[in-house]
Every structure is written in C-alpha cells, then in structure tokens.
C-alpha cells in the first residue's frame, strides 16, 4: 500500500513529528511504501539543518533525512509555509525539498491513504 503523510507541527515542541516518523517506520517494516511526507504549517521546521538537539536526545531532522536516504521517501516542505518561517534552500537539511502545495494534493490523489499528524 502507498502512504502519504502530512506533518503539521515542528519537532520537539509537539509529538506529531515523532508519531509520524514512527508510523512511517512501521509501515515500511510491513513492506508498504511511504511515497511522500508533506510538511506544512510549523511542520516545515522539521526541515532545518540548523537543528542541534542535546546529545542524549533523538535527532528528529536527521532521522527524517535517513528515512529519505534509505527508503526513497520524498520529503516535501511547503514553500509558502517555509518562507513565512525562514526555511529556505540554504538551511534545508539533506533529503528535503521545497515545493508547492500541489505536492500535497498530488499525495492525496496518488496515495492509497493520506494520514495527518498535527496539533
């Protein structure tokens, strides 16, 4: 089955990014495809490479990057939401790309299920 995921909140502040990541991991382990993760609202803050959590904590951003690299998950950050919050190509973590809201609509049309995580 092909999944699309929407993440609407930033890392650390809210659990939604963690829940979304663990959902993706479980889906992939079960042999499903996570076709795209779309980051919207404050969710765009998951994409900044400037993130430096304390060493004993999970690295939310790197975890997404690794998922993209290992499982070809398309990590898309909404351009309008990103520019509003100071996320741009210069501070974008590897594996993420900035694009339009059409990518969210496309995930809705192309995926078998679209699951949203947010506040």
């Amino acid at each position: 089955m092909k999944f699309g995921i929407v993440v609407n909140e930033g890392p650390y502040q809210h659990q939604s990014s963690d829940s979304a990541y663990l959902f993706c991991k479980a889906a992939i382990e079960k042999g499903h495809e996570v076709w795209r993760v779309f980051f919207y609202h404050d969710g765009v803050n998951n994409a900044t490479k400037l993130t430096e959590p304390p060493q004993d904590d999970r690295h939310v951003v790197n975890r997404w990057t690794k998922l993209a690299e290992e499982h070809k998950v398309d990590l898309v950050v909404c351009v309008a939401a990103a520019l509003r919050r100071g996320i741009r190509d210069d501070n974008l973590a590897p594996g993420f790309r900035i694009s339009g809201l059409g990518q969210l609509v496309e995930a809705g049309t192309k995926c078998d299920r679209l699951v949203t995580f947010g506040d």
């Binding site: 309008a80 809201l101 059409g102 609509v105 809705g108 049309t109």
Partner: peptide, 19 residues
C-alpha cells in the same frame, strides 16, 4: 492560530487541481 488561513491556501490549490 494560523491553521484557518493556511487551510484556505490548501483549499484553493486543491480546487486548481480539479479535485
């Protein structure tokens, strides 16, 4: 909160994609 405004932005795009 910004949710209402950003929801409206998604709505407009979705309509543009003829859904």
């Amino acid at each position: 909160t910004i949710y209402a405004l950003e929801a409206l932005e998604v709505v407009l795009i979705t309509a543009a994609f003829d859904q």
